[in-house]
């Protein structure tokens, strides 16, 4: 088995607000092998961005990590001082932000913002050497090199997106966290950028966490996938295994609402109900108010970890795992 690059262990986080605590992450655990692409899916507001930002501790003032560990290369990032953490930021772990449109400062040239990142971590780079590197990065992501000296407002949305990707690649990081890198773009551009990103990733042998609420994109790009619901990682495993046999009813529901080529539109089943308000999440299994298999146990006690009998790495949090006890998978 390959070496583990990132391990999240029982991570919990809350946002303190005037109305109370938003429990944005609840005991999230998983391990990611080096060189793999992990896809994280989940409905809006389930805590995907929070998880991504927590890894580099890029959290707003009101966020508080209430427990758990984040091991990167065996080092617990949560124990590092801010100063030490700076060594990890961008050089080892970089990010493609969800709001990529605003991730470039409006008052500086795009090229200079990337050069700054390079020189910050590799001071031996002269300005012109760093600029050459930016040129290569621009070619890699399919941007015209003459754009280096332009300001962000002179870029189109797709170009900004590519520039952000180039910036994320600038310091040869070991892990890239891409938080819905293409949501603001039209489907065709989105597809092109994603393919390019994935190719670059494979060429450079980088590990990636790919966040999306589009399960189709995840299925295409990632070997491993995680499903989040209401601040919890409810299912995790290889994409293949998850598609073959989803364990959690929520995962199964997600897959059903994803139109397969065979399935006509009317067969698309949408999970009834709304995701819970994280200010006041339900007790027990967070999914129980929407689950068709709900029992008294589900309402009271947090479900245990259930491992797939066929694949050890594939697990879910559920009292009534699909595929077990002769229960049929809803999928297909």
């Amino acid at each position: 088995m390959a070496e583990t690059i990132l391990e999240i262990d029982n991570l919990s986080l809350r946002y303190k607000t005037k109305k109370g605590d938003v429990k944005a992450l609840n005991r999230v655990s998983f391990q990611l092998e080096k060189g793999l692409a992990l896809g994280l899916v989940g409905e809006s507001g389930c805590g995907k961005t929070t998880l991504a930002n927590a890894i580099l501790r890029l959290l707003p003032d009101n966020a508080e990590i209430t427990g758990g560990h984040i091991y990167f290369d065996k080092e617990d990032l949560l124990l590092l001082a801010e100063q030490e953490l700076r060594e990890y930021r961008w050089k080892k772990i970089s990010m493609i932000f969800q709001a990529a449109m605003n991730a470039l400062a409006p008052v500086y040239r795009v090229g200079d913002q990337i050069i700054e990142a390079i020189q910050n971590h590799a001071p031996e780079f002269t300005y012109s050497a760093a600029k050459e590197r930016v040129q290569r990065l621009f070619e890699l992501v399919g941007l015209d090199c003459s754009r280096i000296d332009h300001y962000p407002h002179q870029y189109s949305g797709g170009m900004k997106q590519r520039a952000i990707i180039a910036m994320a690649l600038a310091c040869d990081p070991d892990l890239i966290i891409a938080d819905e890198p293409t949501t603001a773009l039209d489907v065709i551009v989105q597809d092109r950028i994603l393919k390019r990103l994935n190719r670059v990733r494979e060429e450079l042998g980088m590990t990636m966490i790919y966040i999306s609420h589009d399960i189709a994109v995840i299925a295409e790009l990632s070997k491993v996938m995680g499903v989040m619901y209401a601040g919890e990682l409810v299912e995790f495993g290889s994409t293949l295994s998850l598609f073959k046999q989803a364990i959690h009813p929520y995962t199964a529901g997600l897959m059903n609402s994803f139109p397969s080529i065979k399935g006509a539109k009317n067969q698309l089943s949408i999970i009834p109900g709304e995701p819970p308000n994280l200010l006041n999440p339900p007790a027990g299994c967070k999914f129980h108010p929407r689950c068709q298999y709900v029992t008294a146990q589900c309402r009271q006690v947090r479900p245990p970890l259930y491992r797939s009998p066929t694949e050890q790495q594939h697990f879910a949090l559920c009292w009534h795992p699909l595929g077990a006890n002769g229960k049929e998978n809803d999928h297909e």
Partner: peptide, 27 residues
């Protein structure tokens, strides 16, 4: 301070003073 480019500057591992002066304060 809430802007994404300030968070991006933090993510880039820049020194805090630089983030304050060059990113947050400049705009």
């Amino acid at each position: 301070i809430q802007e994404d480019y300030v968070m991006a500057a933090r993510a880039k591992g820049l020194p805090p003073k630089l983030i304050r002066d060059k990113y947050a304060a400049r705009t």
